[in-house]
């Protein structure tokens, strides 16, 4: 089962980034993928509608600021809590290596 979920997850990531397999990167396919595709918005002669459906964080804001910095406002955790500290302890050289 875990393999299957992994596989599904895998496809989802590819789809999330590149769009449905059918729409690939070829320009001819653009008519069929008009409604749902999240890629190819750049090639469309009348591409207003589909930008709205673009997945990801930049939803319906085509004029969003061009920032590489990922501002995860609000999702910052309280790193003073013991549990959280324990959860990343092994990412440090001071962590427990025996595992």
């Amino acid at each position: 089962l875990s393999e299957r979920t992994a596989l599904r997850h895998n496809i989802n990531l590819m789809q999330l980034v590149y769009g449905k397999p059918a729409s690939k990167s070829s320009n001819e396919m653009k008519d069929t993928s008009e409604e749902e595709s999240e890629d190819d918005e750049f090639f469309k002669p009348k591409g207003e509608g589909n930008k709205k459906s673009k997945e990801g964080v930049n939803d319906n804001d085509v004029d969003i600021d061009d920032c590489s910095k990922f501002l995860s406002n609000g999702s910052i955790k309280d790193w003073k809590s013991e549990d959280l500290i324990a959860s990343i302890r092994d990412r440090f050289v001071t962590g427990d290596w025996s595992k």
């Binding site: 750049f42 002669p45 591409g47 085509v62 004029d63 061009d66």
Partner: peptide
Amino acid sequence: MRLKGSQNL
């Protein structure tokens, strides 16, 4: 190559 919008300029 024709593109639209200001994003990712």
